[in-house]
Design a binder for these strands. Structure first.
Lengths: 209, 209
DNA sequence: TTGTCGACCGAGCGCTTGCTTGGTATATCA
DNA sequence: TGATATACCAAGCAAGCGCTCGGTCGACAA
């Protein structure tokens, strides 16, 4: 797994943006391995020994970088939300038409959920309950900021969308997006863009002007 | 949690159907408690001691009824799928019009996912990876049978639905349904029936005849 | 050269885990 | 009366868990 955005350009002067702290530092390597292991084996079933082995260090050395196993989970969640929020902002700012803007957000989120940050995004749902109350509050603040980007976009495109309350429509769309991780393969016959077209087909019932 | 269907009638001669093996037998009581605990605390984090305490017996006594903790999880999954499959069949057979039939299936599934079997249904997704390969295969057979009911219904109503491949449309709808468990409250201002209406609003773009 | 620091090792502590075992109480039925 | 089966208890084992701790090592600054 990587947190770089897919390189769409081949020109050397424009390196892919690195937003996350999941770099080649010791902490970054732990977070990268943790995202994968926690997701594939589950948080509770992943042992600190397994995680350490994946990074290539002794289990005790993990606690030089993080104060607990729980703190590693929280850190992964924080990083992935912040990274994907900044992606969402970039996508929003690249479009002006309300419907095109909403489509861009959906495309970006689909890429987060079924693309490059798939494992870490899945963690947010699958292991949410593994976080204690205080950690949940901290992460929730970031999630709300993320969600607001969607809500604003839906509200601004409202008159060209199916007549459903924006808050609920966002939840229906998020359900679809979230569900893709169990069946959708971005490299399969149906492209990510095709899939977004289908979602937009459901979400809007009026022709764009 | 109970696996009885909601009592819609108050007449004594018509008791609510009991389809599942999760009755008042020792096994049934274990399965009922397991569904709740596994879902709220997670499978790996739920100890056999906690489960036994919930049932009111000693931890060792669990293994008189099930050969392992894993076997309990598999049993819960099998029971909930079989129960909800039979519900789906009943819903299907109560309607003849293709669109009305699809709506009935969606309503029934929504009730399974966000209603009375919420905890156990959530387990199927959340703890799927906790099952070993052989157990997954066994449960998958039951899931396929369940999914076929939906696919058939969508195919039969196809000409009155939005023009999306039935297989994919089913997945989009399932995503919506599955997503409801994190935000939808059947006893809230939006009723289950209202929510199904919204889903149908997305799924069909032609007026029924 | 010396001091400081981050990264890491290796051993292991205290505790919890899933599960086993030997035995008891009650009910059913021949 | 005695045999058989079900349901359960009390005790505990072996393994594995998250985490701690004293110490080592190389990089870098003074």
């Amino acid at each position: 797994m990587t947190f770089e955005t897919a390189a769409t350009s081949s020109s050397p002067p424009a390196p892919p943006p690195r937003v996350s702290a999941m770099d080649d530092s010791p902490k970054g390597r732990i977070l990268t391995a943790a995202a994968q292991l926690f997701r594939t084996r589950g948080f509770a079933k992943t042992t600190v020994r397994e995680l350490a082995a994946e990074v290539g260090i002794q289990s005790g050395s993990l606690f030089h970088h993080f104060k607990s196993k729980d703190a590693i989970l929280e850190s992964v969640m924080v990083e992935v939300i912040e990274f994907n929020t900044s992606r969402l902002i970039a996508a929003r700012d690249a479009e002006t038409d309300p419907v095109a803007r909403l489509r861009a957000l959906i495309l970006t989120e689909l890429n987060s959920i079924s693309g490059d940050t798939k494992e870490a995004m899945g963690l947010l749902v699958a292991e949410w309950d593994a976080l204690d109350g205080e950690a949940q509050s901290r992460v929730l603040v970031l999630r709300d900021r993320y969600e607001k980007l969607f809500l604003d976009a839906i509200e601004q495109a409202r008159d060209r969308l199916v007549d459903i309350d924006p808050f609920i429509l966002r939840r229906l769309i998020y359900g679809i997006q979230s569900g893709t991780r169990t069946w959708f393969n971005p490299d399969g016959p149906l492209s990510t863009s095709d899939l977004v077209d289908l979602v937009m087909k459901l979400a809007r019932d009026k022709e764009s002007s």
